[in-house]
């Protein structure tokens, strides 16, 4: 559906998103009270009404780096509006999995369907999927030769064929949402890590994606900057964005995730809603991992 969406469609979507955003901002007071009561939070998330239409469908996914089997028989369906947190020890294939979704990594077996578009060798399909899938990287990867504003308008102008004026208007609104509109004319090198990562999120949002992939977005940040990035991500989640996050921030997983997935040695070992995952992990490996992550 979204792959045929034109620029005007996306603008409408965007306006809807903005209205939703305003409502949510009004409810930010509620958000704080929710944090105090975990049970209430779980209820709200169940009520938030996850749209049951499947957005990402991964089945029988296998990937090798030479002889090394990185991903083994991955099956994963992501519904529209669902927030998934993927965790696991390093080298377990979490990043590789989400990088397969927008074809930054090629897979050898199995199928990936994003929003009705099957990921094949067809370059047009790959482009269609990349337009609908936003990605935020551990190292931010802002373009250092462009200003913050230009970073945000580059893809809308060249991919969505928007006018510069429209693209800048949208970009400024997203920059306001990540709370750095005053930095718009600076260069990435002049910003702190937390600010850069928020720009990276805004840059992806400017393409008005259906899904956002986060590849360890806070791992390269100083501790005091992690919160500002997580806050932006939490807001985004509450607006109903479909999200897949590879992260070690277990607090974030508890707050926003609909489902937590634990991976080890290229396999999905366990997946469960956060309260079940943290309080009652089924496999030994999950228990061991949680013991190491939560008690450090």
């Amino acid at each position: 559906m979204a792959c045929q969406s034109t620029a005007s469609d996306s603008n409408n979507n965007y306006i809807k998103g903005a209205n939703l955003m305003d409502e949510l901002l009004d409810r930010s007071a509620i958000k704080d009270s929710i944090k105090k009561d975990e049970q209430a939070e779980v209820d709200i998330q169940h009520e938030s009404g996850i749209d049951q239409s499947t957005l990402i469908e991964i089945s029988g996914l296998n990937k090798w780096y030479g002889q090394f089997h990185v991903l083994r028989d991955i099956n994963l369906n992501v519904s529209k509006g669902e927030k998934i947190v993927i965790c696991g020890p390093s080298g377990s294939g979490k990043s590789t999995l989400i990088r397969c979704i927008n074809c930054l990594e090629e897979h050898q077996e199995g199928s990936i369907v994003v929003d009705g578009t099957r990921l094949t060798n067809d370059l047009k399909n790959i482009e269609t999927i990349r337009r609908e899938v936003g990605m935020v990287f551990q190292q931010f990867n802002l373009f250092p030769h462009l200003t913050i504003l230009e970073n945000c308008t580059l893809a809308p102008i060249w991919v969505r064929k928007q006018s510069r004026k429209d693209a800048e208007k949208v970009a400024m609104e997203y920059l306001e949402r990540v709370r750095i509109p005053d930095q718009a004319n600076k260069y990435p090198g002049q910003l702190s890590g937390g600010q850069q990562q928020r720009v990276a999120i805004a840059r992806s949002l400017c393409m008005n994606p259906e899904v956002m992939l986060f590849d360890e977005p806070t791992s390269a940040l100083d501790p005091e900057m992690i919160k500002e990035v997580l806050d932006v991500m939490i807001e985004l989640a509450q607006e109903g964005m479909t999200m897949l996050c590879v992260t070690h921030e277990m607090g974030f997983a508890r707050t926003v995730a609909d489902r937590v997935i634990f991976m080890d040695e290229g396999q999905i070992i366990e997946q469960a809603p956060p309260e079940a995952f943290f309080s009652n992990p089924r496999s030994d490996r999950t228990r061991k991992f949680l013991g190491q992550v939560l008690n450090h």
Binding site: R130, R131, G134, Q139, N141, A155
Partner: peptide
């Protein structure tokens, strides 16, 4: 950096762009 190409590609830009 490789990440620059990946970031640009993930935004939907074609290889030439």
């Amino acid at each position: 950096q490789k990440g620059q190409k990946e970031a640009a590609a993930s935004l939907g830009l074609k290889p030439g762009k």
